[in-house]
Structure formats: structure tokens, C-alpha cells
Design a binder for these strands. Structure first.
Length: 197
DNA sequence: TTCGAGATCGGA
DNA sequence: CCGATCTCGAAT
């Protein structure tokens, strides 16, 4: 594992000089927090520019501009006009590749997450891209925010996660390029948006 | 994508 | 019968 997420400088290098797919793979098991609330990333998907399922495929627009911006920053978009989805911009500026964060294992600020989500069971807090942004209080206001600086915090894998097994499968909820195995999950996790199959 | 209402399923 | 599972529409 060589994601190097801890210090800001190494964070930028990690997002900049590795393929978006490698970054998505290595983000599994790393911690994501927003204002001290968060958990361990257990599910993520990678999207590259020449990818019909990537927002950047249609080109540079007002909405997709953050995707074409510097790596190591957030791209937050509104899904179905209701849910915010959090992506990590990757690869050199202009490549417009990104990792969609799809599920966390809740760990820090669980009470706060339960309050925001309006439900008690841990498995219902962050098991989906729209659920985890609600649980962490992430909305469009965080679009283009740097991931290495507060209120965001990223931590490399710690003790329980150093040798997590990462399983892959088809991405969820897309119609084009649906066969590509660019969904990355912590094998056996009970906090996925859906089973890996 | 998520939620919940209503229908349907399936074990007992 | 009752809970579990599924389908469907609505939120923008």
C-alpha cells in the first residue's frame, strides 16, 4: 500500500501521479473525516475521462469544471436533485478522472451521523454515496475544497486495515461501460451500498 | 440515490 | 398470520 495520504504534499503526489484506478483501490481502508465525523472507506469507484460513465465524458461544463481542476480536491455533485455525491479528483489537472466514494464503515462521531441520518443502525448511516455525505454533513458547499485540509481529513490505513483484501466488480447504477471492474470494496464488509455479488 | 408505501412472498 | 422481500413512485 502506497497511497500516501497523510501529509498534504504526499497527498497531492498520490492523487497526481497514479492512475485513478490505483488510487481507488488503495483508498479502501483509509479514513475519511469531515469536521471530525467519518469512518473507513469500504467502497469506491473510479471514473476516467474517456469513460462514457464519467461526467467529464461530455466535456467541460459549469458542473464538471471541478473535475478538470487540480487533483486532491473534491468534486461534489447533486444526484437526482437531492443527494450530494463526493468524488476525489485524480490524475494531472485536465485529465478529469475521479474516485466516487460510495460507502464508509462508521467510526468517528457515530451519534452525530445517526442524528443527521435520522436512524440508529450503523449499517444505515454511510452505506451509499448519498447517505455518507448526509451523515458527514457534506454538501455542494464543499465542491472544489482541498481534501488534505480541514474540514476534511484523510488518514492512511491504520492497524485494523493494513492488510484489507480489496475485491472488485462492476460499477453500480450506470448503463454505459457497465462491464468494467472499477468498483472497489473491502471484502466481506457489512457496510457496502450493496453486496459485491 | 434514497425512502417509504403498498403489494407480494414464504415459513409456520 | 407476520415478518421479510420486492416494486414502484416521488423527491429535483
Amino acid at each position: 500500500m502506497s497511497t500516501r495520504l497523510v501529509s498534504p504534499s504526499r497527498l497531492e503526489v498520490g492523487f497526481f501521479d497514479r492512475s485513478v484506478h490505483d488510487v481507488a483501490h488503495d483508498l479502501i481502508g483509509c479514513a475519511l473525516l469531515h469536521d471530525g465525523v467519518g469512518g473507513v472507506i469500504v467502497e469506491a469507484e473510479s471514473y476516467e475521462r474517456d469513460d462514457p460513465a464519467c461526467h467529464a465524458y461530455a466535456g467541460l461544463t459549469g458542473r464538471t469544471a471541478p473535475l478538470f481542476g487540480p487533483p486532491g480536491h473534491a468534486y461534489v455533485y447533486l444526484s437526482y436533485g437531492v443527494h450530494s455525491c463526493l468524488n476525489f479528483v485524480c490524475e494531472p489537472e485536465g485529465e478529469a478522472a475521479a474516485v466516487l466514494i460510495r460507502a464508509l464503515e462508521p467510526r468517528w462521531g457515530v451519534e452525530e451521523m445517526s442524528r443527521r441520518r435520522g436512524r440508529d443502525h450503523a449499517r444505515e448511516l454511510c452505506s451509499g454515496p448519498g447517505k455518507l455525505t448526509e451523515a458527514l454533513g457534506i454538501g455542494l458547499q464543499m465542491n472544489q475544497a482541498p481534501l488534505a485540509e480541514p474540514p476534511f481529513e484523510l488518514r492512511d490505513r491504520d492497524d485494523g486495515w493494513r492488510d484489507v483484501r480489496v475485491a472488485t466488480g462492476p460499477r453500480i447504477g450506470i448503463t454505459r461501460a457497465a462491464e468494467l471492474p472499477w468498483r472497489f470494496c473491502a471484502a466481506g464488509s457489512e457496510y457496502l451500498s450493496r453486496p459485491l455479488r
